[in-house]
């Protein structure tokens, strides 16, 4: 029911990543995640320059009924953040994979993305969780 674009990679914690040139990845939360959270009212993003460890809590997405940590899917340095989300968090609800991107991270040298899933694998995960 929710969208899982095939060209992206995913984590079990419902983040997506898109690989950009020069060892940079873009990330956000999945359509499934935004749907589960409901209307987002607030997004808190890390500062530019912060060095993330894969798996650490790096951002918060807040709806009326919940506030959830977003975990860094990769290790690396934050080089860009989607500050427009601070005014219009609903963009994540409307367009989680494009306009609703959250961070761009330059991968640490030799860093592998932690436990990344393919679109098919993520879809299987959703099917299992939903069942």
């Amino acid at each position: 029911m929710t969208s899982v674009p095939s060209q992206l990679e995913y984590t079990a914690a419902h983040e997506w990543i898109r690989r950009l040139p020069d060892g940079v990845v873009e990330m956000g939360i999945t359509d499934h995640a935004q749907h589960a959270l409901g209307d987002l009212v607030f997004v808190e993003l890390p500062e530019i320059g912060r060095v993330l460890e894969a798996g650490e809590a790096c951002a918060v997405v807040e709806s009326v009924k919940s506030a959830s940590d977003v975990y860094a899917p990769v290790s690396g340095e934050v080089i860009a953040r989607n500050t427009a989300l601070e005014q219009t968090p609903e963009t994540i609800n409307q367009d989680p994979y494009h306009a609703g991107w959250m961070l761009r991270v330059r991968l640490a040298p030799g860093a592998a993305a932690a436990a990344v899933l393919s679109a098919a694998e993520y879809q299987t995960l959703l099917d299992t969780e939903g069942g």
Binding site: V41, F42, E62, S63, V64, K65, S66, A67, D69
Partner: peptide, 12 residues
């Protein structure tokens, strides 16, 4: 802003 509070955010 109840999402900050214990009944939703629990340990956090």
């Amino acid at each position: 802003l109840q999402a900050r509070e214990q009944h939703i955010r629990r340990a956090k």
